[in-house]
Amino acid sequence: MPSFRATLQITGLRPGNAPEAVMDMAVAVVGSAHVVEANQLDIVAGIPRITIRFMVEASEYDAENQFARSAAAALAQGVNEVATTGALRCYRRSAGKWLTV
């Protein structure tokens, strides 16, 4: 199965939500349709960024990329319920490199 990752900047928490709710929501949203391989939180240039690594069912190359883009969009929409967000990016693992989808 092809491996993808989505990164999303987190710019703040919505009232009433704990910091853990961000990653919990991210994993739940992507995990509802795909196998989540890993997740992590990084601080890049002073801005928190979550990364969710996931796999999509093997099919045709463009279809796999579309599934990954849809998963990333769902990630952003779900996380936006508990936090304010910034830049969203989606990548595909290919020949040992992460390529933008």
Rank of each mutant, 00 (worst) to 15 (best):
A63V: 13
V82K: 01
N80E: 08
Q77E: 14
I50K: 04
T51A: 11
T51K: 03
R53T: 15
E81M: 13
P48N: 11
V79P: 03
V44F: 06
A63N: 09
D42N: 11
G78C: 01
A83K: 00
Q40M: 10
D62A: 15
V35Q: 12
Q40P: 03
E57Y: 14
E64M: 09
S59G: 14
A38Q: 06
R49A: 09
A58D: 10
A68C: 04
A73C: 08
E64P: 05
R89A: 15
N39T: 07
L41Y: 07
I50V: 05
Q66L: 15
H34D: 15
R89E: 12
F67P: 00
A83P: 01
A76W: 02
D42G: 10
I50Q: 06
F67N: 08
A72I: 04
L41S: 06
G78F: 01
A71M: 06
A83N: 02
A63T: 13
N65C: 15
S70K: 12
Y61I: 12
A58F: 11
A71Q: 03
F54T: 07
S59A: 12
T84F: 14
V82R: 04
V36D: 06
E37W: 02
A71Y: 04
I47P: 07
A72E: 01
L75P: 01
A76M: 08
A45H: 11
